[in-house]
Nucleic acid binder design. Structure first.
Lengths: 199, 199, 199, 199
DNA sequence: GAGTAAACGAGACGGTACGTCTGGTCTTGGT
DNA sequence: ACCAAGACCAGACGTACCGTCTCGTTTACTC
């Protein structure tokens, strides 16, 4: 009965999709959020504007998708935090790595663009939390849980609050450029969190 | 000994300046950052566009100035934190008040607009820190210093880090809408900070 | 043998072209040259400004094109002068008609606009002569030639000079409003020219 | 009671008046009608804009006044035409001189500016005729009258029409750049007029 | 292979806002 | 009292992009 009449254009689709996202990423990394426009993305990707509008409803959504796509090859193991049994050492490693990421100019501009896109758009903000932040948070939370069970943290430690205590200062310093982002700073954040939530 | 030959048009200047900033504030509070334009501001303020461009180089700068002007009547006493001798109680009061501010829709939109304006503009970011954030931070720091001297905090407590531990999680939750902003949350942040930096 | 790859938007093009020229003509006829602006034309034609700028480089060029387009349906026969064998009668007919044209307020404003547009722009002036004035002049010249061959004019009459003698006083009176434009005046011009260039 | 409190500002008035008109003339001669603006005139004359608007209602009026002022030193004798008793010779002299005037680039631009200013403004057109054209026309008319009385012209010659026959073709050629302005052309115009209006 | 339909690149379109420029008015301080 | 200087409101200028739309042109699949 139902014979499939629709050809599958997935290959072209996929090619143009990638071109668009890559062009967007490149433009954001080069020029920052304000320097980009749908026309610039289309032109750079060698694509018609309609091909962009067919998939995404706004510039913010494209920028957002472009950054999200960065993480789409990740699988669960990639984002699992190290667990050597020594929480302090593991957290220092991870926060130092985070500090380094934020220090990279290309990553800086990408994240600022995401931040701008998300800041005034509740829908994108929700997707950001669900699709971008949550997987990372789950991984971090898992490490803290393991530590709590190992007695490295107080039994009634609020792990979500502890995560915020660890990461929010870092995020704020980066966003407002209100202080240096260094390995020492990362270590200090770990120490602070452990003092507050340790046994 | 050549005299200053330029007439002083300060009265007109001041009148139009106020009208522009007020119109900007009203528009941001009503429509959010994306809803505003120089033309809308000029029209609402009953002012020519050139009168805006004569003073500020960009939309961001106007928005920023409009918010900055909010705090320009403040003097030192207005922003001093309460000091009852009980640090925990004082901090709870202050953080609960902050939570409430962020919960007000008009304030929310103003702050998001500032955040957007500042986020991609290093110059504005610097002015934001100097002219907006710093006076508040100084006041908060003064209260912590008094507490440290009173023995309510560890003698070697890093007060700047403590401030970040107190406020950054709140700011991040607000910006990313990643959790509820409640009085309980404010209290939890105070408790966390005191556990980490207490004696 | 590469094909033409450009899409043909000729239907939309033509619709908007007509709308622009018609709106321009209407505005000039109603308000005169000074009352028009590209924005007014665009708004009246229901067209984006860029659609005008895509085709014409300046306001003068649009006005000029709008008037030129008036004559674009004319073919050779439409502008041929009557030839009854009686030159004086034929010329009186034609000059009286010209006088009447110049007396029509709408035509008056259109012609004054063309005159203004052409007056300070050598390129437009050249196009005016070639595309607007020349075809008419050829037709008039043809009638005079036929008359000269019929012995109604002196065999060595300079026909271009005779045309100027006929029309220039009319044009000048109209442009400078330096005297009444009446049928009698038209007749007097014909008589003058025939006295000067007759056999 | 009535002590005279008014200083005599007529000297300053006169100085700025001259400066404005001279600056206008220079600007028109250099840049043509489109190149001028009230601001440019004010700046060039070292005068405030208001000083211009106090005296003239529009740009056209200033331009017009600037050209009119050129002729204000003229007295009756300056513009009287030569009267040697040989009309043809006298007219050739005068028309050749006129041709030469129109050939001068500075004069060309000034006259085109006047023409543009006058063309869309009925009030200025009237003043142009009264204050600029009429005195010259009277002088020309006087010469023709003398000729008619001397029997060099037909007794019933319409002198105004004859003036138009002499000058309008020249004016039109110049305005539309529709042919060369040469001494031969001037002579041909004289011959044409004499054939039409001679005895 | 030939036929087909969806997706495509290109880019014109009606619009909005930009940042600049000029016009005409108003204000202030200097001469 | 009058002026130069220039800020002001107003609004047109020409440009850049927006999001929509219409064109021919691939392309991937069907028969």
């Amino acid at each position: 009965m139902t014979d499939n009449k629709k050809p599958d254009h997935s290959r072209r689709k996929e090619r143009s999709r990638r071109a668009i996202l890559e062009a967007t990423r490149a433009l954001v990394a080069e020029e920052g959020y304000d320097g980009i426009s749908i026309e610039a993305i289309a032109s750079r990707a060698g694509v018609g504007k309609q091909t962009i509008y067919r998939r995404w409803p706004s510039k913010d959504a494209v920028v957002f998708a472009a950054i999200l796509a960065l993480g789409e090859n990740r699988d669960g193991d990639d984002i699992a935090l190290p667990d050597t049994g020594d929480l302090r050492a593991d957290l220092r490693l991870v926060l130092r790595a985070t500090v380094e990421e934020f220090t990279d100019p290309a990553f800086d501009r990408l994240m600022r663009a995401v931040n701008t896109a998300v800041s005034d758009n509740e829908t994108l903000a929700a997707r950001y939390r669900e699709e971008f932040a949550r997987p990372l948070d789950e991984a971090k939370r898992a490490r803290l849980l393991s530590a709590r069970e190992a007695g490295e943290l107080s039994p009634d430690a609020d792990l979500d609050l502890m995560l915020e205590t660890l990461y929010a200062p870092l995020f704020q310093r980066w966003l407002h450029r209100s202080g240096p982002l260094t390995a020492e700073y990362a270590d200090a954040l770990v120490d602070t969190a452990l003092r507050a939530f340790g046994p």
